[in-house]
Write a protein that binds this DNA or RNA. Structure first.
Lengths: 121, 121
DNA sequence: GAGATAGTTGAACGGTTGTTCAACTGTTTG
DNA sequence: CAAACAGTTGAACAACCGTTCAACTATCTC
């Protein structure tokens, strides 16, 4: 059974376990799925956005109150809310001069909960 | 019932729902927890690292084979493996000149699976 | 309509981050 | 021990990203 081969593409190695590589390549998700996944996690990878998600969990909050809760400017919060909006992680409702934001669904909380479990080990 | 107050700290707003803010501040996780959480998600927020995690799932792989599978240099992969190592997301075993990496535990897969569910909506 | 306030937005700045490159360590083999 | 190869590492560069600032829209009130 042949296991090694010389000069496989895209790698400066000279000896490779080509069967393993072929098998793994087969099992890998599409490139677009990998990008979607990492883009999704990128949203959570910022402490400001994470704080916002916790803040607006349960009871909706207006931008000004979120800013005050986090000790940040309205502008900074609004920029992050835009990103959360574009990722469909939050929904909002206008009420006079205020805009009240809240979590889009419980899916988001599930994922954060899983991560919290992992961290506490 | 008093609901508004002027000039709350850290916010240029003049009228604030102070009760909501107090309640939310109470319910928020520690600042360190928020940083730990976002740092954790930051690891997943890169498509190279995401690809590596899928590649080394199940059967362990050496650095050279990972590089070949992803079409990247050993150096670039090694840099990312270092980050995954420091986050305890992967474990490794030396075998002669090779170093074989694999997932640290099934917890990681659970979280990615949850995210995949969310994306497919 | 004028003034005040909530929220959004685009440009700019500074810090972060991923890849490249070159040099290095460590192991195997002749 | 010398050559070859797997893997790691630090510096440098470029691209990306979050906050700030200033200007803007929209709504409410007088």
């Amino acid at each position: 059974m042949k296991v090694y081969e010389k000069n496989a593409p895209d790698c400066e190695c000279e000896e490779l376990h080509t069967e393993v590589i072929a098998k793994k390549r087969e099992a890998m998700p599409d490139e677009s799925t990998l990008y979607d996944l990492s883009d999704f996690f990128k949203i959570f990878g910022d402490s400001t956005r994470m704080s916002i998600l916790f803040a607006i969990d349960g009871e909706p909050m207006c931008v000004c109150d979120i800013a005050s809760t986090l000790g940040m400017t309205k502008s900074a919060v609004s920029h992050q809310l835009k990103i959360l909006r574009q990722s469909d992680l939050v929904t909002y409702k206008k009420s006079g001069k205020n805009v009240f934001y809240t979590l889009a669904d419980d899916h988001v909380k599930d994922i954060i909960e899983k991560a919290l479990e992992h961290i506490r080990e």
